[in-house]
Design a binder for these strands. Structure first.
Lengths: 398, 398
DNA sequence: ATCGTTTGTCTAGTGGATGAACAAAGTTTA
DNA sequence: TAAACTTTGTTCATCCACTAGACAAACGAT
């Protein structure tokens, strides 16, 4: 039995206050009268809610605006600097941290690169990145409203990192650790989910409600936005589409399965194929995504073919995804997005041949807009949303 | 911009009235006091809402019950016969119609079999099935509250059947036709979605919120319940998992794709393989699911192997589904469910080998409980739910 | 017989939305 | 330039739904 209770009457106020605030955020600068007509609320109701929001410093009044044939409106603005959010993309060999205002604008950022570090070393770098952003955050009414971390692995619903294979982490409760250290709300989210949310809020996914975000790095992660919300599955383990079987009795994967998609369509596959074909970049230098990218850029036919092959296999998996989710949009994100020019064509060709006609109606394939920042901005946005959800009841600004 | 407005204050009443009604339905027989404590609402509030529900004939008062040390409670019951619902499973070679009360109990049913009929002939049979159930419905306060149809094909959000390949139907607006003919609310739903809903409401899926219902008949359809709600995708075309690729460059499918799952794991595949192996049943008789079932039942090793092979391939696709959706439960439904004894083992074996360990936690594979009735009962339930959604504001019973 | 309990109704009170009136500050028109 | 209309935002009386608490009815326990 659900303990879900749809109760009382001052829920109405909370909801309406939320609605007013969201309307101001979306359409600011705006007058009280306009808010009333947009929301359908009474002018008086809006007036009183607005005055509370002003008290809470969440919005500003910038004085009279231009008249449209009557009394001049008092212009309201969202006070986007009433607080700040920290979003971290914790990658396999980098940490990207951003500091954003309450609108999600990137105010400060810092990237640290590394290779093969232990958990202790990485967490030290993580803490110093957070500290760095803390120090650079302007003073504000609410200060830092929370910390969000995107991780390349599976996260349970209570924020424990259960398995991050590429980091070699297992069962780490980063949420508890950070909450204790900083005494702030902390959100841990899968990197692909965070990226999907970032693209939806700030990138190419703005106008869509059913989005499949495919994060192609060394592995493949997928973030699903269904009916406008992230879908995490039962234990928060969804989106493990990198381990979808696309070839029965195919290559052996370390996950125990065979024929997994990410063995055919990720950076990992690209590098392996390049090695097998004996493609050489600079002598004595390890082959890498960047070096292959340069080779292709210089017109090396063999390398371009490798990228095209990745595109083709991406198409196979994406085709499955489309037949499963019937999304409005598929977004290819993470590093591979930079190779769009070679990947796009074979991918689309595979899709046109294989996807059911009625799935192609209103379907769009896009490449990431925020590029490497989508996950960090996405978790920062999650933090902001959580802040507002708990903050529509009056809270004291400084 | 969404026109979604979270507004006013008598929404509260509607919600609470819904809550009270649902509580009574779930836990009847029950007293007003118990409803109050279960919902968290005030006794007075419950009293007034209950009196409205009594006026609307949606609940009954059966007089005093047993005391537990104080005044005897007045026992409330859900008036499950205040109205009736019609649910139809429109199959490829049959029509199954059920008449249910408002609790979804099967009151009357009628099945018609046929082969290779035109749209006109089928719709005639459909109408006569509906008429049959109409005539047998008891008189009640609200009469028949609506008609629901489950169809083996894709249905758009406004109820148009876009493509039902096995019926050879295309772009048929059955909803408009029925609404006009019967002047009642009509719900058209994909058969797999309906089946999923049926199993969730009345079958093995009762206690789960993330369910994948795999309907294996001649083809494979999938109904997805995510976060407790049916997920239909952008255009209502989701769940076309029958056309998921499980073998690159595999068998050619009439959908234009290659290596589609349903070519390997459905009745269609079973029959084809039987033919190829030269398995003979009764001479001069066409091979069929039933005849193969009998052969296997009699211990024919070859035939059993065919079923096991289906189980294995079902496992491959289900494995993909699990890695995608991380559901709590997978339900195998439709006719193939009757072959559980041969299918179950190879299916589970494939899964244990291939599914990620953390996906197997809290995961359950079940076979359908309602068997052939899940889709019909499912749409009937949809109709009932739609009735209550529009009926929590007062409506006049007869 | 008395006391405590449970149930359901009733009444007064409260919080929040609404509509209308109104003042303030504009623009448009004659 | 004055009069008339418009637009904005506040105030106030009213309404609606929920709540708390009092109360009566009906029961069990001692």
């Amino acid at each position: 039995m659900k303990t879900l209770q749809t109760w009382n009457q001052h829920v109405v106020k909370k909801e309406n206050k939320s609605l007013v605030l969201e309307t101001i955020i979306r359409t600011s600068p705006i007058s009280r009268a306009k808010v009333a007509s947009l929301t359908g609320l009474n002018k008086g109701t809006v007036s009183s809610l607005v005055s509370e929001l002003l008290d809470e410093k969440l919005i500003n009044d910038s004085g009279p605006g231009k008249s449209s044939g009557g009394r001049r409106p008092l212009i309201l603005h969202f006070n986007k600097t009433a607080g700040f959010s920290i979003g971290i993309d914790l990658g396999v060999n980098y940490i990207l941290g951003v500091l954003t205002d309450l609108e999600g604008n990137n105010i400060q950022e810092k990237t640290v690169y590394f290779t093969n570090l232990s958990y202790e070393e990485i967490s030290k770098k993580l803490f110093s990145t957070i500290d760095y952003l803390f120090e650079r955050s302007p003073t504000s009414a609410y200060g830092i409203v929370g910390i969000g971390i995107g991780v390349p692995g599976t996260v349970s619903k209570d924020g424990e990192i259960l398995l991050a294979p590429n980091l070699d982490w297992k069962n780490i409760n980063l949420k508890a650790i950070l909450q204790k250290k900083y005494n702030l709300p902390v959100i841990i989210e899968n990197e692909a989910n965070a990226g999907a949310h970032g693209e939806k809020r700030f990138g190419v996914g703005k106008d869509f409600d059913n989005i499949v975000y495919v994060s192609v790095g060394m592995g493949i992660g997928v973030g699903l936005i269904l009916n406008g919300n992230i879908y995490k599955g039962n234990n928060g383990f969804s989106g493990e589409l990198g381990h979808m079987t696309i070839e029965v009795n195919g290559l052996k994967c370390r996950c125990g399965n065979e024929g997994c998609w990410e063995l055919y369509a990720s950076e990992q596959a690209l590098l392996k194929n390049a090695l097998q074909q004996g493609i050489t970049t600079s002598p004595n230098k390890e082959i890498s995504f960047e070096s292959l990218y340069k080779l292709a850029e210089n017109g090396d036919k063999e390398t371009i073919k490798l990228f095209e092959q990745i595109g083709d296999y991406l198409g196979v998996g994406i085709n499955n995804i489309i037949n499963t989710f019937n999304p409005q949009q598929v977004i290819i994100g993470n590093r591979i997005a930079s190779a769009q020019k070679w990947i796009q064509e074979p991918l689309k060709k595979r899709m046109i041949n294989q996807t059911l006609w009625f799935q192609q109606r209103d379907l769009q394939i896009d490449f990431s807009e925020l590029s490497t920042h989508s996950a960090a901005l996405g978790v920062a946005a999650y933090v902001i949303e959580a802040f507002f959800k708990n903050d529509t009841q009056p809270k004291n600004a400084i």
